[in-house]
Every structure is written in structure tokens, then in C-alpha cells.
Design a protein around this nucleic acid. Structure first.
Length: 525
RNA sequence: GCCAGCGUAGUUCAACGGUUAGAACGAGGGACUCAUAAGCCUUAGACAGAGGUUCGACUCCUCUCGCUGGCACCA
């Protein structure tokens, strides 16, 4: 039976337009999803929007709109980003969807309640009218709110709480044992040490008089579920949990991987697993945690004027170049820096001068010397043109000798692909692409070794073998790029007249010259 | 303040305690010409600082400086 693979991004909070960080998350999740499909898995890839809560209510008021309209308009922009980025998601869930999301969230709540893990408690705190929020002792100076110079009132509020404390040890065990894997390791350590500090029960509702834009607590309409509580439920409500048709839930849950940002680590590594344990549901298998994107060393902000709008960026520079930059130039798990200058540098050197130029030069030679058609030479002919030198990327610690005098196809299949696969298994996406570009460098050097543009004057058969090997390299790169730059991969396959869905061995290429894959960008505008 | 982690060439990243600390981009130089004046070869350039442990430390310990994430009601 076909193995299933369920992958999600976090749902994006729609209080404003999409941040480039969400584009990063989409690109990462999409690369993984596409890779798993190529591996033959039955993939379900979910993304969506988180639309409830006080922040959105406030932002909507400011815009003079109802929360519904406001959230709806922003959600549409996020959807557009998903499309523009060519993200291969299978579904898009919105937490304001009363038909799809509410029933499952309610059902989850009830399950926790049945387990005796939801209880009512008075929360007493210092309420500052100026803040319109609770403040803590730390915020006070001489008993007064430092910001508003007013004494806070003591307010008692009745909330529902979830017995998170009960599940600390169970979650810790799952994380430590690898039942719930956390990538990268440092985030796993962070989770464990956080649990070790001791978990307290957490509030899961607010009075609906304060927050009405949300999902009412079942059986108590005076309370609204805390937005994060029901937001987490999206991972199962989207699969039909709590609806009349739970087929997808039965089939795909538990999630194989949740892709998230580091700001919501604890919700996914501790609280969500605890909720699932309470509900008697299986835990997700892994959580993938990326960092934040800054620009020019600073947090992106309108005031600084360094905000990069992903929708606009794709518009100006194209989808694949942005995907490439996000996945190769931004560290996969750490914070990264994104500037347009740096983007253009990477674009010119890696895409235009690197990949695009390579495809141009070899397809042009095949066109000129062989009328565009190459048939696979014999093994003897191919072994007569081995790789003679190689970069240290593939031969660390002076193990290079082993790789010399092997044929490029052998090198690609026996050396490059295993590196590619093993990096992918750890979700080290940047490293995967590093391997692809190291191969590209290898192929450019191979051109230099045999100089087919000179060789053609003296030895047609040998030139054919060289160009065949170079084509094999180009096609291999196309396959390797499929998860990362799907359009580009197709274009390359197309240039060589190879069908994209065919997994048969290539026996012939028919080159069709086309425009360069990536035009150089001379100026930063 | 407390806890955890980080600080390697101009920039982004590598380096089981052990031969001259590796790449890439950018910068300088060279030979070529199939190609998007791209590609190839080559040069310069770094271990935050100070101590210590060790035959030997980027790698372990201490301190200083700098940065990041947490310290729960914030989604």
C-alpha cells in the first residue's frame, strides 16, 4: 500500500499582509512535500489561516471593517501567495470557517473535558485600563502602571484551564525518545529544558464579553476559546475531524511533520502534544522549526522601511528565484538575512551565470555539433571520458582519489544522489541544494577538462560521449531541483526533450533551444 | 537579573582535541572561447578578547565583551 505523508505549515495569522517569513515556511514545506511525492508517498499538504483573536478584532476596527471581512480580505492575499509561490498544497483551512473548523475544535474541547482536563478557575489579576489588559507586578512602579501612571484594578475573571501540568512527563518522554522528533536538535533541547522547569496549567478561554470573535466554548456561551487552542486544532479539523466524513482524518493523522517558526515552538512541541494525549489521539511524528528573516541585520519594520513583501517580490523577480533564495541562502533552521542586493548577487551568480549558463552552453553545443540529437553512446565510449578532477565538496579529507576516473553518471548516481538523499532525510534543505550546486560546479569543470568545443574538430565520437555525460548531469540536476524549483526543473527537462514523469533510463536527448533560463539582472531597482 | 545557546575571512556557512582552519559569494590576477563578457585556473583574506587544562584546542574549563532565544496568560 502507498505510504501516506501528512505535512502542514503553521496557519498564518491574518492581522496584516503576509511576511516573507511565511513565504519561507511555505517554500520549505513545499520542498518537503514535493520530495515525498517524488518518493512515491501519498502526500497531504495543508496550509491555511488563523483568523480569530483580539489582535485581529483590533486591526479590523482600525480598518473600519468587521472582523469577518477584514480576515477574509487578508486570507485572500495569503491564498494568492500560496499560488504565486507555486506551492503544491492540497488544502487551505481557515479557522473562521464555521462548517469545516468549528465542529472539530468543539469536539476536541469536549474530548479534553471528558478526560477531566478542562476545569474552571478564577483568575485574579491586575487590570490596567490604559493597557486594556492585565499587567504584572513587574510592570508597576510604586503600585502604578509605568506606562499610564494609573493604579490597576484587581479584577477576577473566570476562565477555563487545561491541565497541561499533567502531561509534562509524557510529552518529555515522547520528545526524548524520538517518538516526536524535533528538528533541529537545539529546539528539542529547548523543549526538554522548558518542561524540566515545570509546566503549569494554562488558560484556554476568555470571557466572550471581551473576545467575541472566536469559537464559543461548548455548553458555555459566556466564554470563547483562546485563539491558540482552536488554531492548533486546524491540523485535524482540516482532515474532517469532528465532521460527518472523517476519512481523511483516519487516513492521514498523525501528521508526519509540522513546519513552524521558532516563535510557536512550545505550542507545537508541548501544548499540542499534551492536548492530543488528553484527547487520546496519536502525536505528530515530527516538528520542523525554522528561524526568522531579518533584513540588513534588522527586524523588518515599516518604520525602518526594510519590509520585503513576498507577493510583490514574486511579481518582480519570479517564483523560482525567490524559492531558490529562501531555501539556499537562508539557513534552514537559523535566522537569516534577506536583502534585495544579496538576492540579486545570488541570482546572478548561481542562477544566471551558474545554472542558466550551463544549460545554454551545453544545449548550444549539442545543437551545433549534433543537430540537437544525442543518442546514448556505448559504455566503452562513456568510460573513455571519466571525471579527472573534482571539488573538495565531494572528497573531504583527501579521499578524492576514489572519485577520479569514474564516469559522470556513475559519480552522480553513486556519490551525489546519496549525499542529496541523506541531507534531505534530515531536512537540511540548504545542504541539499549545496550538493546540487557542487555538482553543477563539477560539470562546468568537466567541460573545461575535455573542451568539447575543441574536441569536436578532431573526435566526433568522443565529443558525443562528453556531451552525453553533460546532458546526463543537466537532467540529473533537473530532477534534483524538482522539489525546490519546479518550473525550472520542467524547463530543463523540456529543453532536453525528456518527459518529466518518465523514470526510465535516458537513451536519447533532443535539444530544443530556448531563451536563457535566467536573464542576468544588471541593476538593483 | 536568571537559564540556555551563539560569536570563524568583507559577507554567508564548514571543521571526531591532533598534520599548512575548509568552501561559496564579493575583490585582485591569468590562460581560454561552447555559453547569458558566463565558465575555468589562481591570489589576498578569519578562529571576539584574556587566562587555564593538555604533549597538543576553533573544539574542554573560567572570566570579560557582544548577540540570540526563553523566564508561561502573549497570539
Amino acid at each position: 500500500m502507498q505510504e501516506k505523508f501528512y505535512i502542514s505549515t503553521a496557519i498564518a495569522y491574518v492581522n496584516s499582509r503576509p511576511h516573507i517569513g511565511f513565504a519561507l515556511e511555505l517554500a520549505q514545506a513545499d520542498a518537503i512535500a514535493r520530495w515525498q511525492r517524488l518518493n512515491g508517498k501519498d502526500v497531504f499538504f495543508l496550509t491555511g489561516t488563523d483568523e480569530h483573536g483580539a489582535k485581529i478584532t483590533r486591526a479590523a476596527e482600525k480598518a473600519g471593517k468587521s472582523p469577518q471581512d477584514f480576515a477574509g480580505e487578508n486570507a485572500a492575499v495569503f491564498k494568492k501567495l500560496v499560488e504565486d509561490l507555486n506551492v503544491s498544497s492540497d488544502d487551505f483551512i481557515r479557522t473562521s470557517d464555521e462548517k469545516r473548523h468549528f465542529p472539530g475544535a468543539v469536539k476536541l474541547w469536549k474530548k479534553l473535558e471528558e478526560s477531566g482536563d478542562i476545569y474552571k478557575k478564577n483568575y485574579s489579576g491586575l487590570y490596567c485600563v490604559g493597557h486594556e489588559a492585565f499587567v504584572t507586578q513587574k510592570d508597576l512602579v510604586d503600585g502604578k502602571c509605568a506606562d499610564h501612571d494609573a493604579e490597576p484594578e484587581t479584577i477576577e475573571e473566570e476562565n477555563y484551564f487545561f491541565r497541561l501540568s499533567k502531561y509534562g512527563q509524557a510529552v518529555k518522554k515522547a520528545v526524548e525518545s524520538g517518538e516526536l522528533k524535533i528538528f533541529p536538535e537545539s529546539r528539542k533541547n529547548e523543549t526538554v529544558s522548558f518542561i524540566n522547569e515545570g509546566l503549569e496549567d494554562i488558560s484556554v478561554s476568555r470571557p466572550s464579553k471581551d473576545i467575541s470573535w472566536g469559537i464559543p466554548v461548548p455548553g458555555d456561551s459566556t466564554q470563547t476559546m483562546y485563539v491558540w487552542f482552536e488554531a492548533l486544532a486546524n491540523y485535524i479539523t482540516a482532515l474532517g475531524f469532528g465532521s460527518s466524513n472523517q476519512d481523511n482524518f483516519e487516513k492521514f493523522w498523525p501528521a508526519d511533520i509540522h513546519v513552524i517558526g521558532k516563535d510557536i515552538l512550545r505550542f507545537h512541541s508541548i501544548i499540542w502534544p499534551a492536548m492530543l494525549l488528553s484527547a487520546g489521539l496519536p502525536l505528530p511524528k515530527s516538528v520542523f522549526v525554522h528561524g526568522f528573516i531579518h533584513s540588513g541585520g534588522r527586524k523588518m519594520s515599516k518604520t525602518v522601511g526594510n519590509v520585503i513583501d513576498p507577493v510583490d517580490f514574486v511579481d518582480r523577480h519570479g517564483c523560482d528565484p525567490l524559492r531558490y533564495y529562501l531555501l539556499r541562502d537562508i539557513p534552514t533552521f537559523e535566522d537569516g538575512d534577506f536583502t534585495e542586493e544579496r538576492f540579486v548577487e545570488a541570482y546572478n551568480s548561481d542562477l544566471a551565470n551558474g545554472l542558466g549558463n550551463y544549460i545554454s552552453r551545453i544545449s548550444k553545443m549539442i545543437e551545433q555539433y549534433f543537430g540537437g540529437v544525442l543518442e546514448r553512446p556505448s559504455d566503452n565510449e562513456l568510460s573513455a571520458v571519466p571525471i579527472k578532477k573534482h571539488s573538495s565538496f565531494f572528497a573531504p579529507n583527501g579521499e578524492g582519489a576514489k572519485l577520479e576516473l569514474v564516469s559522470p553518471p556513475y559519480f552522480i548516481d553513486q556519490v551525489v544522489w546519496p549525499i542529496y538523499r541523506s541531507a534531505f532525510a534530515d531536512y537540511k534543505l540548504k545542504q541539499v541544494l549545496d550538493a546540487v550546486w557542487a555538482l553543477l560546479g563539477e560539470l562546468d569543470a568537466y567541460v573545461q577538462t575535455y573542451e568539447p568545443f575543441k574536441l569536436i574538430k578532431t573526435d566526433t565520437e568522443k565529443t558525443r560521449a562528453v556531451l552525453w555525460n553533460l546532458s546526463y548531469g543537466a537532467l540529473s540536476i533537473a530532477w534534483m531541483l524538482k522539489p525546490f524549483m519546479p518550473d525550472t526543473a520542467e524547463k530543463i527537462l523540456d529543453t532536453f526533450g525528456v518527459k518529466s514523469d518518465s523514470k526510465e533510463e535516458w537513451l536519447k536527448v533532443g535539444v530544443k533551444l530556448d531563451d536563457p533560463l535566467f536573464a542576468r539582472k544588471e541593476n538593483v531597482d
